[in-house]
């Protein structure tokens, strides 16, 4: 039994990811002296907090068996509208934030509706939604950035700080805390609530989930709505961090968030993945980008790293799954629906 537990641990992608992170950290620590300092690490955490929060939402959608490309556009829209309301209409803080979050949830639910009711494949539905929301944002904003954010929005919120002997200030700020809260909430949601477990079940075998009576439609709305919410939180925090709202600032972050989640072990075919894994995925990508920067390698190189990450990690996942399948039982009709299921299945209604 102990041996089984050890083997199980070995198979978890998080363990391997952690090993890679330690290795990369050690190498970068030696090669780039500024890397392994508290200030740099905390700075790194803050830079990637927004992406990490959005990754939490995306992780939920991935577990449910879907995919979403539109969340960065959702975040931009939620952010811009909230900032607009706060600056131009003078809306009170909580109200502006509330509207921003509602916009995120609403756009997420719209995705869910397109996927569940209209039955558009999630990738096409969300690409279309991304195009519509982002284009409308650019049209109505005219591409203009908003700089005059109210003070309550841009004021640093420091939870803890320390000064190193050489005067470097290290501060644990709101984005970092928000990221940790988002991770904790997502972890609790996915491991400790019946809905979260149903999302795992649906991602693992949608037909079986339907048969045991899970409400597939509700689950879709929860997953995409949750991602919309997290995207909006990320968008609002982004404005807090940089003190301005640029309509296309977050455009194109979807791919790096997606690759972080995939790298962290979230399966694109659904049902598999964990919050610590996704966080580690973000950490690894952040370390690579920051480390390459410190080493003087062009930041343009980063997108190549992302592309390779997606290609290699997905290929390995699929190939190793296939290998394991062959080792198990050759005569077993895994993956192909059994005859009974296909014969009696009516056209999807």
């Amino acid at each position: 039994m102990r041996e089984g537990a050890l083997r199980r641990l070995q198979r978890r992608p998080e363990v391997w990811l952690l090993a890679v992170i330690v290795l990369v950290g050690a190498i970068l620590g030696v090669a780039a002296p500024g890397f392994l300092t508290l200030a740099n690490i905390v700075d790194l955490l803050e830079t990637y907090s927004v992406q990490a929060i959005m990754a939490m939402g995306l992780f939920v959608v991935l577990v449910s068996g879907g995919i979403d490309i539109s969340f960065a556009a959702t975040a931009s829209v939620a952010q811009y509208v909230a900032v607009l309301l706060a600056t131009r209409a003078g809306l009170a803080g909580p109200l502006a934030i509330g509207v921003g979050l509602l916009i995120g949830i609403g756009l997420g639910c719209l995705n869910a509706a397109l996927i569940h009711f209209v039955r558009i494949t999630s990738i096409i539905a969300t690409i279309a939604m991304m195009s519509v929301t982002f284009s409308l944002l650019m049209y109505f904003s005219g591409g203009r950035s908003l700089y005059d954010l109210p003070e309550w929005w841009t004021d640093r919120v420091v939870f803890w700080q320390t000064e190193s002997p050489n005067g470097d200030l290290t501060r644990i700020t709101l984005p970092i805390v928000a990221m940790l809260v988002a991770a904790l909430v997502t972890w609790l949601f996915m491991t400790r609530t019946p809905i979260g477990r149903q999302l795992y079940a649906m991602g693992g075998n949608p037909e079986a989930a339907r048969r045991i009576g899970a409400n597939i439609g509700m689950l879709q709305f929860v997953a995409y709505g949750y991602l919309g919410f997290m995207a909006a939180v990320g968008g609002l925090l982004q404005a807090h961090r940089v003190g301005e709202s640029v309509p296309n600032a977050m455009y194109n972050t979807e791919l790096s968030v997606l690759s972080a989640a995939v790298l962290g072990g979230a399966s694109l075919s659904g049902g598999i993945g964990s919050v610590p894994g996704v966080l580690l995925g973000i950490v690894l990508l952040a370390m690579l980008q920051n480390g390459l920067n410190l080493l003087g390698v062009s930041s343009y190189f980063f997108q190549i790293v992302i592309g390779l990450t997606i290609l290699i990690s997905t290929s390995i996942t699929v190939l190793s799954a296939r290998k394991r399948r062959r080792h198990r039982n050759p005569s077993e009709p895994l993956g192909t629906p059994t005859l009974g299921a296909t014969t009696q299945e009516p056209a999807r209604v």
Binding site: S259, F301, Q303, I304
Partner: peptide, 26 residues
């Protein structure tokens, strides 16, 4: 590999774009 084409081409897109941007500095 049997990986879904969406993922494969998402990867190749990112890789190709990355190489182009890297070599031209955008």
């Amino acid at each position: 590999t049997g990986v879904h084409p969406i993922l494969v081409t998402l990867g190749t897109k990112s890789l190709i774009d990355g190489i182009s941007i890297f070599l031209t500095r955008g």
